[in-house]
Simulated assay, not measured.
Amino acid sequence: MINRAAESYRQDGMRRAYLLGPSHGTPAERVARFRPAFDALTSAGFAVTAPAVSQPAACESADHLLSVMDDDLDALAAADVVVTLPGSDRLWEIAIADALGVPVVSFADCLAERACA
């Protein structure tokens, strides 16, 4: 399923960024933490996926959790780059991105060095 998703995500030709950061706090707190990076990446021409903001705060069942994880893996596999916010260094998505060959870049480096360009 991951490979099929990666192909479909790229049909529009846009570069894809998977924005990764800590998902603790209320939905409003998560939006406030992710919004500046989300907006900057969008302005730079990326289609941005930020699961910590778009996913529900809690899953209703094991099946729901598996569905959410499946969506996250599809988006991660389809990404051209994983952009990390502070506090992301121990999140599971980094290991998956490394295994898939998706570059992982901090948001600070992305801005300072144009590493995401």
Rank of each mutant, 00 (worst) to 15 (best):
M1T: 12
N3T: 12
A6E: 13
Y9R: 12
R10N: 10
Q11G: 11
G13N: 11
R16Y: 14
Y18E: 01
L19P: 04
P22A: 08
H24Q: 13
G25L: 07
P27A: 05
A28Q: 14
E29Y: 00
R30I: 03
V31S: 09
R33Y: 11
R33V: 03
R33A: 13
R33K: 13
F34K: 07
F34R: 10
F34M: 09
R35E: 15
P36M: 04
D39A: 11
A40Q: 08
L41M: 07
T42A: 15
F46H: 06
A50V: 07
A50C: 10
A50Q: 09
S54F: 09
Q55D: 15
P56A: 02
A57P: 00
A58N: 15
C59R: 13
E60F: 06
E60A: 10
D63E: 15
H64K: 14
H64P: 01
S67L: 07
S67G: 14
D72I: 04
L73F: 02
A75P: 00
D80V: 12
D80F: 12
L85K: 09
L85W: 08
P86H: 03
P86G: 05
S88L: 04
L91T: 01
W92Y: 13
I94M: 08
I96G: 01
A97Q: 04
D98S: 13
L100I: 04
V102I: 10
V104F: 07
V104Y: 05
V104D: 06
V105K: 05
V105E: 06
S106D: 01
S106H: 03
F107M: 11
F107T: 02
A108E: 15
A108V: 04
A108T: 06
C110S: 12
L111A: 15
A112V: 03
A115Q: 13
A117H: 11
A117G: 09
